[in-house]
Computed example of a mutant assay.
Amino acid sequence: MSSPSQESILTAAGRLFGERGYRAVTVRDIAAEAGVSAALVMKLFISKAKLFAAVQPDESLLTELTVPASELGGALVFRVLMRRERGMQEPWAMIPINVHDAPDPDASRNELRERYLGSIAKLIGDATPDRRYASTVTALMTGFGETVRTLGLFDGWDFDELVAYYGGIVQTQIDACTAAHS
């Protein structure tokens, strides 16, 4: 169980890393935002790199989906929009930031690629050697998450209309995967 100090540090770090990126954020910045000392941040998390790793988005957003395969596209889009409405961190939007600003971008790229592609491939049943359908769904969702977060291109759209519209685009790849494996 984490302490209130740990939670405030994780919240502050997640927000600051998400806004500014890894390199632009200092331990002192995180400590000030969390209302604790930099020494406490270091005591609890050992290093800025370990704190960065601790606030990485959780792909459980993929493993906890319990909808029929025919509704997965809409469910993925729905979750992005719900996180936006609740002001929560967006894992899909964080992928590019987490790679580019990681202490070791190549290792981060490989780890995130395997984590997301593996989760999506399992979710949609993609058994192709190159995981082509999982790759396309991952690309669509990463772009959508980043677009919603950064550019606000879908601001003003009706929530349900956007779920149906963009969810349908994602669903075409999921359906293509199902058809290819039938």
Rank of each mutant, 00 (worst) to 15 (best):
G73T: 03
G125D: 00
L61N: 03
G168T: 00
G74M: 01
C177S: 02
S119H: 07
I95F: 07
A31H: 05
D160A: 07
I124A: 04
A164M: 15
A127F: 10
V67G: 08
A24L: 07
W92Y: 13
H181A: 09
A176V: 08
V77I: 04
T136W: 10
S70L: 07
E64A: 12
A38T: 03
A107Y: 01
A12P: 12
A54V: 13
G145V: 00
G168L: 00
M42A: 09
L153F: 14
Y116I: 00
R109G: 09
Q89C: 05
W157L: 08
D104M: 05
E7G: 06
M42R: 05
D155T: 13
D158E: 14
V137C: 05
N110C: 08
Q173R: 07
L61E: 09
I97N: 02
A127Y: 13
A53C: 06
Q56Y: 04
G74P: 04
H100N: 09
Q56H: 14
Y22G: 10
L72G: 03
L76H: 00
E161N: 13
N110A: 06
K122A: 15
A102F: 07
D58C: 12
T178F: 11
V170K: 00
I46G: 04
A164P: 04
R84A: 05
I174R: 12
N98D: 09
M141G: 05
A127M: 13
D158Y: 14
A13Q: 00
G21M: 05
G14D: 11
D160Q: 14
D175F: 11
D155M: 14
A134I: 07
R23D: 11
E33A: 13
R84Q: 12
A31Y: 02
D58H: 12
A49N: 13
L10S: 06
P4L: 10
D101H: 03
L151M: 15
G35S: 08
P91Q: 02
D104G: 10
S60I: 11
A54T: 11
E114P: 02
